[in-house]
Design a protein around this nucleic acid. Structure first.
Length: 104
DNA sequence: CCCGTGACATCGG
DNA sequence: TCCGATGCCACGG
């Protein structure tokens, strides 16, 4: 099973509660690799469990929405987060308030 | 086994 | 404040 770093990332991503968001670095940190943020993004891009992994709840550390297929997809992502109750500031997530603590 | 790629993060100028 | 460059990690071919 895998114990793959990738699997771990997916698992953690699924734990993100509604109305909260996590950063790639945060996921990497929880997975045990504080510097693997880049790898995390790669996994989302691969994202074999798209419907199972709410990758839309994962944003960059500054709260900017990145990825999601294309820049146009960013809009959809924004709407999804907004619909979940995630505070937004312009085109960015209010990472200060919506950042997932990582511990529930 | 080596190389290239990528949805990040961080530092310096 | 903005821009550019570097480092890190894992995957696929």
């Amino acid at each position: 099973m895998t114990t793959s770093f990738k699997e771990k990332i997916y698992k953690i991503t699924r734990r993100i509660p509604k109305g909260k968001v996590a950063t790639y670095g945060q996921l990497a940190l929880l997975a045990g690799k504080p510097k693997a943020a880049r790898a995390v993004g790669s996994f989302m891009r691969t994202n074999p469990d798209a419907p199972r992994t709410p990758c839309h709840r994962v944003v960059s550390k500054n709260g900017a929405l990145t990825g999601y297929s294309m820049k146009k997809g960013i809009v959809t992502k924004k709407h999804m987060l907004l619909a979940e109750g995630v505070p937004f500031i312009g085109e960015k997530v209010d990472i200060k308030k919506a950042l997932w603590t990582g511990v529930i």
